[in-house]
Design a protein around this nucleic acid. Structure first.
Lengths: 348, 348
DNA sequence: GCCTCGATAGAAAGCGCTTTCTGTCTGAGA
DNA sequence: TCTCAGACAGAAAGCGCTTTCTATCGAGGC
């Protein structure tokens, strides 16, 4: 049989209550007693029964981190930072060990809801939702409902890179300034003299996609430049590759292509190169996110940097309650233009 | 208050036992009764209390996936595949919903143990350990002990890309054929005529590092070629960048560099390029893993492909017990040489 | 027509903790 | 010396499920 609290209590010649108190460190216990208990724990190789503990205490030490695609470093970096921050905060508190778990929704609303329910079922201590969400009203309402339930049950909710649902004051939110980043990027291209700019957007109906596109369009509108061709697709290399063909068909005279993110930009570069077009001499290319590999592309990618690590770490601290959510509504995480070799003046 | 099983039972005019049986689908319940219960569940918006359920049933629906670095696509891809497979298997079983959670150890033995304990505490249904491990005997023993405890408590243990601990028959193991892959790669280089090959290895004391290095050395030995300079470092871009300088100092006449993995290779390429050396004309470069971005490097990276997605998915199925662990000990996952533009005949 | 069996449903005993409510004992103050 | 606060420790009542073990009710079987 597995060792129980009672076994430890018996061995340490104290009551179960005392063992529990030693383990949780939330009640005064004489040093000598504590030591006796700890030794018994050690000798018996005792491990607390989590479910029993969660049931009795009505809380658990689970923190859920929901991401759209765990294979994408964009999420990997944020999740890693969050998990690190959570571990750090936890180690500073007695009995505050938290199990930070990342759940991969694959961008599917259904799986997102499933995970949220599972986390609710586990009475998770906190939930962090990372990355943009689908803008379908029905899904939004369903998600908002779940989050409200979670908050009500005492689960802390943190949004990281996802706009808060209007009217929901429960969740601490970190929103990325995608719009400004995208605008700066397109302004940069316009400043170089580009007038025919293609755009490879992310999946339609996603907040991130929309915001980046809006920033791009705002820059064009402000400069009085007509919008070039736009193609939607997933956030992967393949999408960039395919979209490039489409873009060039629609406007063979493109001098620049803006991609939804760096991964997509890599696909764009590959397609361009395959057609014998040189970057940036024939066509400039820009990405978004400044993922680690972007600096190693040839030429290195001009992109927009998002402080993914910082944002993830902050989300982790918010989830642990180690940092107060700022009163003034959602925090805007600034983006920063990173100029590198993949953009230049157009020929002529 | 939150809704409990009893509330649902009252509303459906049945006993709590019946509600439980409907929810778990493990006992015959008349269709009409089932429907009544389900409606009550729906009307009350009832969510099962996970801890209570786990406590009573002595099992939980948690599956832990431990990875060394979640920000590294190598792990992201495997974790994603595993989580997908787990979700797939679960959806085919009534009440079989599993919460697949990935835990980021950061390669730290201490955190690995911590997570294992946390999962043990949660009475996890299964645990998957991904990626190589530290070879420190003490840590190995500690880990083996934990895994034995877990297995004993009914948790299924799966190793994916990590050699099984000798004498441990509890864990299903999928081991990557790093040795053969590395050997093939070096043989390819030798075949091209390279005789002065530098090697940027991963962290010392890691199984993956050692196996790849062994394969490399085996090829050299077989060909009677002297080993070139070797530098150890983490599995990141920076390491490759830095190691390259060291390598060239030790042997300025190098004609090829083999990197511990693709990410490291990217750093090598950057450093080489910075010194005005052309790839592959001046120096050939090779990686390992064939991560998605490797084909987009310029020139595209010669590397060794590991079926990460397949392996991850299989690990997921093994964890769910949906696939029997093969009787004949650990399964070897084959690696495959992928020849691309970053390697060529040396000058002369 | 009586008994047995299969199909359902309920009663109730925990699962292993946490925590409130009670002590008990010591030392300080009067 | 007596009282009382303070510091610890124990008893016991759940937390919300699961799961035996029992009941009940028809339908066949003899």
């Amino acid at each position: 049989m597995t060792v129980t609290l009672a076994d430890v209590a018996a061995r340490a010649r104290v009551s179960p209550a005392t063992v529990s108190r030693v383990l949780n460190g939330n009640y005064p216990v004489a040093a000598s007693t504590r030591e006796r208990v700890l030794r018994a724990v050690d000798e018996l190789d005792y491990v607390l029964n989590g479910p029993a503990s969660s049931l009795a205490a009505a809380t658990s030490d689970l923190v859920g981190v929901l991401v759209n695609d765990i294979a994408d470093p964009f999420f990997g970096i944020m999740a890693s930072a969050a998990q690190g921050a959570i571990g750090e905060v936890a180690s500073g508190r007695a009995g505050g060990e938290k199990l930070a778990v990342v759940c991969n929704t694959g961008g599917s609303p259904a799986r997102e809801l499933t995970y949220l329910t599972l986390l609710q079922r586990q009475r998770a201590a906190a939930v962090i939702l990372m990355g943009g969400s689908l803008e379908d009203p029905e899904h939004l309402a369903a998600t908002a409902g779940k989050l409200a339930k979670l908050a009500e049950a005492g689960t802390r909710v943190v949004l990281c890179g996802r706009p808060p649902v209007p009217g929901d004051a429960n969740a601490a939110a970190l929103v990325f300034d995608n719009r400004t980043g995208a605008r700066l990027l397109t302004e940069h291209l316009l400043g170089l003299g580009h007038r025919r700019i293609g755009y490879v957007a992310g999946p339609a109906d996603r907040t991130t996609t929309r915001h980046r596109l809006e920033g791009h369009r705002a820059a064009l509108a402000a400069a009085g430049v007509a919008e070039g061709p736009t193609v939607h697709g997933p956030y992967d290399r393949e999408a960039g590759y395919r979209a490039t063909a489409e873009l060039l068909t629609r406007d063979p005279g493109l001098t620049a292509v803006v991609a939804a993110n760096d991964t997509v930009a890599l696909g764009v570069c590959a397609a361009l190169r395959e057609r014998g077009l040189s970057i940036p001499d024939d066509v400039s290319v820009a990405g978004f996110d400044d993922l680690p590999f972007s600096v190693d592309a040839v030429p290195a990618l001009t992109t927009v940097r998002l402080p993914l690590h910082d944002a993830g770490a902050r989300a982790g601290r918010l989830a642990m309650g180690a940092e107060e959510p700022p009163a003034g509504g959602p925090v805007t995480v600034p983006s920063e233009l990173v100029l590198r070799g993949s953009t230049a003046r157009p020929r002529d």
